[in-house]
């Protein structure tokens, strides 16, 4: 059974269609790549899925729940968590406190939350930075903190918005490994990424958006050989 179904989702801002009639499904445990040129509507689709905007038309069905109109906090409690393209560390709180805020979504006990947080911090490899203020981390570690924090909310589905953006090749490689590790744990992921090599490596399936519409969907091999996709990216006629 599909964990996430996007059914004919459209989002209009005034007369502008940021998403129009996008539909696809995600199976449990897979990694779905979401790609497209700048302004294709990838982040808008994320926002529609996670409750930041209600979709103008269509339905988002997650784990049997219809998500339209749910607020982000309710979405998180149902088991869907997201990271942000522009990282949002809780700057004046330590790394472990940041992750604890995520963990407190599932428990009221600080002690349990701290244990859960330390576990997630180990997964992303920030254990020796646990007591540092989040605001003083360099960008690579902020991205990892972001992932640890959403992992602590115990999601079934994780939406990663450009977690590799602005990273050097070594750091990107670490994040790729991290995404594959998370897949091993059994968490389904949807990944927005501009780095084509990375996205081809990690994705089981890829959806291509262009000007708000779904241009193509398939496994990585199908996508690289799809003429419409190549045209959209390289500007064919």
């Amino acid at each position: 059974m599909a964990i996430l179904e996007i059914k004919h989702v459209s989002k209009f801002f005034g007369g502008l269609a940021a998403n129009s009639n996008v539909s696809f499904e995600m199976a449990q445990g897979m990694i779905m790549g979401l790609i497209g040129p700048n302004g294709a509507g990838k982040t808008t689709l994320f926002n529609c899925i996670t409750g930041y905007y209600p979709p103008s038309q269509g339905d988002v069905i997650f784990d049997g729940h219809r998500m339209n109109g749910l607020h982000p906090d309710a979405v998180c409690k149902l088991g869907m968590a997201r990271t942000w393209q522009k990282v949002r560390p809780l700057a004046k709180m330590s790394v472990v406190d940041n992750v604890m805020v995520g963990a407190l979504c599932r428990t009221n006990s600080l002690k349990v939350a701290r244990e859960m947080a330390i576990e997630r911090i180990k997964i992303v490899g920030l254990e020796n930075r646990a007591k540092v203020l989040a605001g003083s981390l360099p960008i690579g570690e902020r991205k990892k903190l972001e992932v640890a924090r959403v992992l602590a909310t115990q999601p079934k589905l994780l939406l990663l918005d450009e977690v590799m953006g602005g990273l050097n090749p070594t750091e990107s490689e670490e994040i790729i490994q991290l995404i594959l590790d998370i897949k091993e744990i059994g968490i389904t992921q949807m990944v927005i990424e501009h780095d084509m090599k990375a996205i081809m490596r990690i994705s089981d399936r890829i959806v291509v958006l262009s000007s708000g519409e779904k241009l193509a969907e398939g496994n990585p091999q199908e996508i690289v050989s799809n003429k419409a996709v190549v045209d959209a990216y390289l500007g064919g006629d």
């Binding site: 996670t50 930041y52 607020h71 982000p72 906090d73 309710a74 998180c76 409690k77 968590a81 997201r82 942000w84 949002r88 560390p89 809780l90 700057a91 004046k92 709180m93 406190d97 805020v101 995520g102 407190l104 979504c105 924090r149 959403v150 909310t153």
Partner: peptide
């Protein structure tokens, strides 16, 4: 404190 530091991040972490 999470709300103080970043409301949108707090919201996405399950905070009403």
């Amino acid at each position: 404190q999470a709300i103080r530091e970043d409301q949108d991040a707090a919201h996405s972490l399950g905070i009403n």
